[in-house]
């Protein structure tokens, strides 16, 4: 059992005068407007608990005002939480002194920002090297590292440009590079791609997926885009009014929404794109099969196999051992459970 990379317990953030009084009080359950009228306070985040395993991509999804940006900022105390505890890589962040906090921010955690947050007065190379500069790494070393990182994010040779000479997508590559330059264990993404065009957004998502396989970092990813959440997340937390409504794998969220709010959200998602064969397969069948698929394969990817054959498809695990089978009826029932006009689908 490895230790969690990030561990959060009972985390609250209340904005307003005498905020700590609101925590866990009956007032906290009042509707937003009433609470504000009564106490002048707004609860941005209430009683958040979460554990992120090393190497996991944990996505927090919610609409604007749901408290997700507050949550990610409380992790490194860019915003001071009102109550609760945060532990990152064994360091008690909420109890950390100034020096510990600086070390954490410099070495352990990096953040990618919604509007890129590039410093317009610096060249790309100096932007990427910013975190190293803050750590007082000497100039030659940080330049070399930054060149390397720019190469990694596909901007090699553009180091002397200024941010305003780049497109949004390229700017966010720089933002990503800057976060990677300090070689942190944990990356925090605050809606990093929401300001980008859909096509570029997709490219960037691919970039994250690639990075993940190459560098294996723990990531907390904030987004308001469900398809992005489903694409990137190992686990997804749906946030509403400062609370987690549901935490689970993409399959769990789409397959068994916790309440109407979540259901409404995932209604347009083609379930066959999300649900893996493993969760709908039946017992292994003997005899011939139409082919073999891994249990993590999405149901829709089995469709070509079952369409051309009446035989079931064999399901195997990562080790290659047969763990079950899936037939045409099972596939059709997954597909039939969904909306017949899937505008929201983004199938490949």
């Amino acid at each position: 059992m490895t230790e969690s990379a990030i561990s959060v317990h009972g985390l609250w953030k209340v904005f307003g005068p005498k905020a700590e009084r609101i925590v866990k009080s009956p007032d906290a359950d009042l509707p937003r407007g009433e609470l504000e009228a009564k106490t002048g306070c707004v609860v941005a985040m209430r009683d958040i608990n979460l554990e992120v395993a090393p190497g996991e991509v944990f996505v927090v999804m919610g609409l604007s005002g749901s408290g997700k940006s507050t949550l990610v900022r409380c992790l490194t105390r860019l915003i001071e939480p009102t109550a609760g505890s945060v532990t990152i890589s064994g360091v008690d962040v909420t109890g950390a002194d100034r020096e510990q906090l600086l070390q954490l921010r410099r070495n352990t955690v990096s953040m990618v920002f919604q509007h890129f947050g590039l410093l317009p007065h610096r060249t790309l190379i100096d932007n990427v090297a910013f975190g190293l500069e803050v750590q007082k790494v000497d100039k030659a070393a940080r330049r070399a590292k930054a060149e390397e990182i720019l190469e990694l994010v596909g901007l090699g040779g553009l180091g002397q440009r200024k941010p305003d000479q780049l497109s949004g997508g390229m700017q966010q590559r720089v933002g990503l590079g800057r976060a990677l330059a300090t070689d942190p264990e944990i990356l925090l993404f605050d809606e990093p791609f929401s300001a980008l065009d859909p096509l570029i957004r997709r490219d960037m998502q691919d970039e994250v997926i690639r990075l993940r396989s190459e560098v294996n970092k723990t990531m907390v990813f904030i987004t308001h885009d469900l398809s992005e959440a489903l694409r990137l997340g190992d686990r997804i937390a749906i946030m509403r009014d400062g609370k987690f409504v549901q935490v689970g794998t993409p399959e769990e969220v789409v397959g068994s929404p916790a309440d109407d709010y979540v259901r409404n959200f995932v209604r347009d998602v083609p379930r066959s794109h999300v649900i893996a064969v493993g969760s709908v397969m039946s017992a292994p069948s003997d005899g011939d099969d139409a082919g073999t698929v891994n249990s993590t394969t999405k149901v829709r990817d089995v469709v070509p196999l079952v369409a051309h054959s009446d035989l079931p498809v064999r399901v195997v695990n990562d080790a290659g051992a047969t763990v079950g089978s899936i037939d045409r009826v099972a596939v059709l029932s997954v597909i039939a459970g969904e909306d017949l006009h899937p505008e929201g689908s983004q199938g490949r």
Partner: peptide, 12 residues
């Protein structure tokens, strides 16, 4: 955003 960037990278 800019000051937050600085803080998040551990600026004193």
């Amino acid at each position: 955003t800019s000051t937050e960037v600085g803080t998040s990278f551990g600026c004193t």
